[in-house]
């Protein structure tokens, strides 16, 4: 639970829940930062291999850190500013119907 710049005057932390567990966040922190600071490194599983994912690029580019925030699915945890009372939950696991990948679909470009 380490935080950079401990010496600062801290505002009262926000209290969020992650799948029911309380997580605190400092004003200005993203929900992703709050989770990582709480030792939680993954909150999504991939569709194909079911692998765990959390923050990767940290700046809104990679979409690996998708999370459900107050019933909005697919939000980038690295960008969403934490707010008091926010409810975070793991992204629904979305395996393909069959083994792993199933059909690929045909979305071309």
């Amino acid at each position: 639970m380490s935080h950079a710049g401990r010496e600062r005057t801290e505002a009262a932390p926000y209290r969020l829940t992650f799948d029911g567990t309380t997580v605190t966040a400092r004003p200005g922190q993203s929900v992703g930062a709050a989770l990582v600071a709480a030792g939680i490194v993954s909150w999504r599983t991939t569709r194909r291999a079911g692998g765990p994912r959390g923050l990767f690029c940290g700046i809104g580019v990679c979409f690996d850190c998708l999370i459900t925030v107050d019933d909005h699915p697919g939000q980038r945890a690295c960008l969403v500013p934490a707010r008091d009372g926010m409810r975070l939950s793991r992204e629904e696991t979305r395996p393909s119907a069959e083994d792993g990948r199933g059909g690929e679909g045909s979305d071309g470009d």
Binding site: H3, A4, A33, C57, G58, C78
Partner: peptide, 14 residues
């Protein structure tokens, strides 16, 4: 850069 962003922007160590 993400590690840096956590440090600089969010005061969190990954």
């Amino acid at each position: 850069g993400g590690v840096q962003a956590l440090l600089k922007g969010h005061r969190a160590v990954a």
